[in-house]
Amino acid sequence: MRNNGILRIVARFLIPLILLFALYIQFHGEYSPGGGFQAGVVFAAGWILFVLIYGLEAGLKVIPQRAMVVVMACGALLYAFIGLLGVLLGGHFLDFAPLLPSAPKGAQQAGIILVEFGVGMTVATVVMLIFTMFAGRKSQIHLIDGIPDSEPVTYPEMNQDNSANQSTDTAAETRD
């Protein structure tokens, strides 16, 4: 697939459009259907399209897996932070009114936009992460399948696991 020229060219047009559309859904959610969740999914879809065409490695170069985990947590934390801000400013949790005491409507809008952004962040990265995990899993399995069955298979990871295990045991031992 990767070498298919047509796909690449179409993708080059499509992907930015998709991402743009995602941003539109994200920030226009108060006026038309859409919001953080849908935007996140669409954004992730754009990235997935990218991966399907350019390969997982390229995709991970753009957004590394670790970053996904971090952003995914940050999205949730952003939401929580906005909520907490309400508390810190003397209101209830997720109470947006105290954010801008002078303009209650504006405060609500700001709150909604911000939490929606948090939702979008989390959703987009989670979807990407899940996809990465599934896709990455496949390549790992193929790798193992390549080993002839007759050979006694030793898994390097397994051994690592094992030694890690033992080291914890000893650690626990000494602590006792």
Binding site: G29, E30, Y31, S32, P33, G35, F37, M72, A73, G75, A76, Y79, A80, G83, F93, L94, F96, P104, K105, G106, Q108, Q109, G111, I112, V115, E116, G118, V119, T122, V123, V126
Partner: peptide, 28 residues
């Protein structure tokens, strides 16, 4: 209350925003 026309967004993110927080957590 909010000055935005999309009621779904308003209910989602403000009136019942703890539900939505839960939703974010679920996806997390």
């Amino acid at each position: 209350d909010m000055g935005i026309p999309n009621m779904v967004a308003a209910v989602l993110a403000s009136y019942r925003s703890i539900d939505t927080f839960g939703e974010v957590i679920v996806i997390f």
